[in-house]
């Protein structure tokens, strides 16, 4: 088991470095630079001096090595678009709203989705099943900006229950959290339904019935535990995906989160910020997949204990 974790960690580190190189190259492959987009072009000599100051006149491999050397010392540089702070500082304060809203969205959406999926699986081909499927399909197919707009329309404009947008007091969080919850809820509703049905059709469930166990015990102890294994493994990657903010949700609800920077850093060729955001995302995904794999192995006796005992 320990060997498995070490092996996976090493392969994760390799992946991470390969990804960092690819991102770095792709970032610089986009034509233009940080001082090209302005309405008033900079004089060439000033431009050259700025480029030299930022080290952008060096060959790409050197820029990369310098950057990674900095990363190694947890120095991600200074964002071009707001030179008054560090990249670390900017991400740290901008991430809070994204983490709170997206995180709560997943934490609320996933359990609701699981309950929906369970209800659907246990009442196969009934109206509950069809309703759950319909909700799941809508949640996955309606774009999040449409959901967000609808939420504002219904709860803020028509019903006046919540403020339409903003960040600050928790009342303002309700609608963005609902918007964020849609995808995890829908995903989990589908996932839980198929995992439960898959387990319910296993021969051992018939054996449990033939032993005279109550239906409740069969469902809540055996079926749920077996179905939980695949469900747990998708949780962390999903959490990472959503708790890093969505440009659409944050723009519509005017939340000062991380989402907007993904786009602005690319538009403005803000290389340090862009690079840091990309590395953050890929690191989080790498780690979440690693933890998921370890969890899967821990929960599954076949992998945890390996071959035959006898």
């Amino acid at each position: 088991m320990l060997q498995f974790i070490i092996r996976r960690t090493l392969s994760m580190l390799v992946t991470f470095f390969v990804v960092s190189i690819i991102i770095f190259m792709m970032m610089h492959a986009i034509p233009g630079g940080p001082f090209d987009g302005n309405d008033m072009p900079l004089p060439d000599n000033i431009r050259a001096r700025l480029m030299a100051q930022l080290g952008l006149d060096k060959p790409l491999w050197e820029q990369y090595l310098r950057y990674m050397w900095g990363v190694f010392h947890l120095d991600f540089g200074v964002p071009y678009q707001s030179p008054g702070e560090t990249v670390m500082g900017l991400i740290a304060h901008a991430w809070v709203p994204s983490l709170v809203l997206g995180g709560l969205g997943v934490l609320i959406g996933a359990p609701i989705g699981i309950l929906l999926g369970m209800a659907a699986a246990l009442n196969r081909n009934s109206w509950i099943d069809y309703l759950a499927s319909a909700i799941a399909t809508l949640g996955l197919t309606i774009p999040v900006f449409v959901i967000s707009t609808l939420l504002i329309l219904v709860f803020a404009v028509w019903l006046h229950w919540t403020p339409a947008s903003g960040w600050g007091e928790p009342r303002r969080w309700i609608l963005p959290i609902m918007a964020y919850a849609a995808v995890p809820m829908a995903t989990y509703a589908r996932y839980a339904r198929s995992a439960m049905l898959d387990t319910l059709n296993k021969p051992f469930v018939t054996v449990l019935r033939a032993k005279g166990l109550s239906e409740r015990r069969i469902i809540f102890q055996h079926v749920l535990r077996n179905s939980a294994i695949p469900m747990i493994t998708i949780f962390l990657p999903m959490f990472v995906g959503i708790a890093t903010g969505s440009i659409f949700v944050e723009a519509i609800f005017r939340v000062p989160g991380l989402g907007a920077y993904f786009v602005s850093s690319i538009q403005k060729r803000d290389y340090p910020l862009e690079m840091a955001l990309m590395l953050l995302i890929s690191a989080l995904f790498c780690i979440s997949y690693l933890i998921s794999d370890v969890l899967y192995a821990l929960l599954n006796p076949r992998i945890r204990l390996g071959g035959k005992g006898r």
């Binding site: 021969p203 051992f204 033939a210 032993k211 005279g212 055996h222 535990r225 077996n226």
Partner: peptide, 27 residues
């Protein structure tokens, strides 16, 4: 349902064809 659960396993017990899939793998 309750009467059935009390009969199964106590009055009549069953053994099935494929022992490899007859037991819950996680217990």
């Amino acid at each position: 349902k309750r009467a059935l659960a009390s009969i199964r396993g106590r009055v009549a017990a069953m053994v099935f064809q494929d022992p490899m899939t007859s037991l819950d793998p996680v217990f």
